[in-house]
Design a protein around this nucleic acid. Structure first.
Lengths: 124, 124
DNA sequence: CAAACATACAACCAATCAGTTGTATGTTGT
DNA sequence: ACAACATACAACTGATTGGTTGTATGTTTG
């Protein structure tokens, strides 16, 4: 299980890159709320159909959205599990911070303990 | 009336852009776990000091990290509140999805109770 | 003081990005 | 059949990105 080319980090690159554009975030909101064809999405924005099509492709490559073909339309749907996975990554970052606090607490505890473990035990 | 390019969306642009680079995510992990000088961070990566300095600047502009000056060093520290705010945005996306499910349930209920002719529901 | 260290910032470069237009191909309704 | 619609994709362009080197300035330390 060699993780030299961390699959997880590649995934995160794609996730955050996809989310770093407000048009793509807006598209994601819509397709999470319900299926939309690419042309229906395109009508919502002041840019060409091809531009919107590219945004949808970026979201699809990142796994945040899936497309299914129905007749001449491509219906896009948001993948809430992928969104949750991004959330988990943020939660893991928070955990690192909580670790820092724990270590600060430990340091503070050892400092105060060290001070009181000597011959003289005087309360303040 | 709305020429204000949503402050919130600007913020999200900066957040997700900052997180879309694995070196920056790694830096953020370190500074969330504890304070690090920019040069100490730079020693961890196979790139120039200036490159790491730029990554730190991107994280700082996004509000994910703060710097304080101590002597000749710039000590960087992660801002967990900002990380939480990003998480909140993801949770809001999930809420849209839950809304879709509710609407699907409602549709299913109305279909089973009687024949509905209201099938076209286009929105902006 | 001088040398080593830590930072800041400008200028430059190759690669990627977000948008465009144009063309091709398949699908639907009359 | 055919016109309108929906998608796919290639080629191009200007802006941005992630990296580099070089220079300048302030801070420790020997």
């Amino acid at each position: 299980m060699n993780e030299t080319t961390s699959e997880r980090e590649d995934q995160a690159d794609a996730w955050f890159h996809a989310l770093a554009d407000r048009t793509r975030r807006d598209i994601l909101r819509r397709v999470l709320a319900g299926e939309h064809s690419v042309s229906a999405l395109a009508r919502s924005y002041d840019m060409s159909f091809a531009a919107v099509q590219k945004h949808v492709a970026v979201l699809e490559r990142a796994g945040l959205l899936t497309k299914r073909r129905q007749g001449r339309e491509a219906l896009a749907s948001g993948d809430v599990e992928a969104v949750r996975s991004v959330g988990v990554m943020l939660t893991e970052l928070e955990a690192l911070w909580r670790g820092r606090i724990s270590r600060m607490d430990a340091l503070f505890a050892s400092e105060t303990t060290e001070n009181s473990t000597d011959t003289t035990n005087q309360k303040d």
